[in-house]
Nucleic acid binder design. Sequence first.
DNA 1: CTACGCTGATAACCAATGGCTATGACGACG
DNA 2: CGTCGTCATAGCCATTGGTTATCAGCGTAG
Lengths: 306, 306
Amino acid sequence: MTTDVHVRDLRYFVAVAEELHFTRAAEKLYVSQPALSKQIRALERQLDAELFRRDRQGVALTAAGAALLPYAQRVLAVWAEGAAALAEVGAAERSTLVVGMSTSPGRGGLLPAIRSRFTAARPEANVRLRQVSWDDPTAGLADGAADVAFVWLPLPDAERYGWTVVAEEPRLVALLDTHPLAARAEVDFADLVDEPFLALPPDAGPLRDHWLALDERGGQLPRIGAEIASTEETYEALVAGLGICLVATGNAHLITLGGVITRPVHGISPSRYALAWRREDGVRPLVRAYAEACRLVAPMRSADSP
Amino acid sequence: MTTDVHVRDLRYFVAVAEELHFTRAAEKLYVSQPALSKQIRALERQLDAELFRRDRQGVALTAAGAALLPYAQRVLAVWAEGAAALAEVGAAERSTLVVGMSTSPGRGGLLPAIRSRFTAARPEANVRLRQVSWDDPTAGLADGAADVAFVWLPLPDAERYGWTVVAEEPRLVALLDTHPLAARAEVDFADLVDEPFLALPPDAGPLRDHWLALDERGGQLPRIGAEIASTEETYEALVAGLGICLVATGNAHLITLGGVITRPVHGISPSRYALAWRREDGVRPLVRAYAEACRLVAPMRSADSP
DNA sequence: CTACGCTGATAACCAATGGCTATGACGACG
DNA sequence: CGTCGTCATAGCCATTGGTTATCAGCGTAG
């Protein structure tokens, strides 16, 4: 036998104990009097104890009922506290937007501009930025670590996400200043196809392919010089001569440090940088507001999904 | 919407939170894993909060779950305390027998004898004696104030009670020593029919009739000199000359104080004194044991009801 | 003294709940 | 690559918790 009760039954019990009157208690509880009677009897049966004595002159607590009453009240109080705490957490979570990103979006104050527009529209909201490792091309959307994220298109499982493009940038090639091609002001992708490339982790899926420019190779597989999972690794790998890599114009400054230069590349498509969200979150007010702020700040042609 | 939960669901929640593993928690709780899953989801839906995050690497508490956990544990603890308190009261009540009586049964140590037999058979039991006013002929059985009671037969609502006779005693007449009949050693009831009688309260029903010897009056109503509700009142009414009254042999000594005497009466039936109980209590171990002790101590022919 | 009103209890019914078994989806791992 | 182990889902059924309608006891007002 279980000794568990429904908290509702304790509410009923306390109400009757306080009113000492079933009909009045039932009104206060917004249930019918028979329902209350039945529940109290069921409680008495379950606890194997007579809680009330009903006789001519109304209703009275028995010894068992009197013993139980303070505990029932404490249970109700504790549970009310717990529910309040839960509501508080819920409110805080609902008012916090987590923005995922791999490297900082940079791009001339993009993030502060979005942020100020967003907080103007939603002053009560909090924004948390979250750095996500490069092996997650969704920058935290997939596992729920982020509510919205700055990502490179295309996304894997594209049908699960909505997005709005914030920048479209030509891809450059990054290489050592001692590389034979470094002498040219611009290079053609055809000159790069046999070079060893630095690649994202295999987990990155279509994104890895994109930065290897797989589409532009006509089915011929690239040589992989190394795998990289951060800006620093990329720079070190370049300097070590493990390979070359493509990089978005807006990110070029991150690696053009000592010995590394970038050059425009002909023959490959530009990259699209976007703010993305899980499709089912498209209705959340904070998500909508953040996406709207992005559109206003970076008014590209919107490739949103409906 | 109600925010009430079933305590069971909190048990489930706490178990999963502690195990961080549905299947193991389900085993510990002796329910199937789907049932547990369903209940947790229902709880989450009811509270409108995600309590657990289920992903690849198992189950983890969310912020909401972590916030709720301590309250859930406190609710369980408080309720466990309450249930324990209730059980304690229940045990105490179950081991206590309340014996109702109007005046003390007296009769040469009847009560101590019964008590010692009873406690020999049920050492764990407590006996509480309870004095009940004369206007309740069931001496507390009717309103639950007593579990068993020493009463005079016949009882009102006789079908509701079982009993065992402990004494059968001739009725005496009590009167002042200055009364004309006081000179006789014995009197005939016919000599008393026109005397004013002291009577029990009307509430006493058949018992009042019995002590007025209504059956022996052939339909002629008695004169009522006064109504009495205690030994002291009876004595005072006798001394005041308000009337005479019948009294059981075993009770004679209670009122034969200064100026009051008793005389045997011919022509009326004796009285039967019994231990009675509510019929539905006939199965309770303590009630059975007490009745058995009565039978052993006062081995009258038993008029028990089955 | 009867008729009424108010008490809590009961009956009959119905939707929702809570449990079960069987099965599915999916990642981990040999 | 198949199998195992995880949690989720589906379909089923008994129990629960609510409803309205009605009853039985009892005090009280005509």
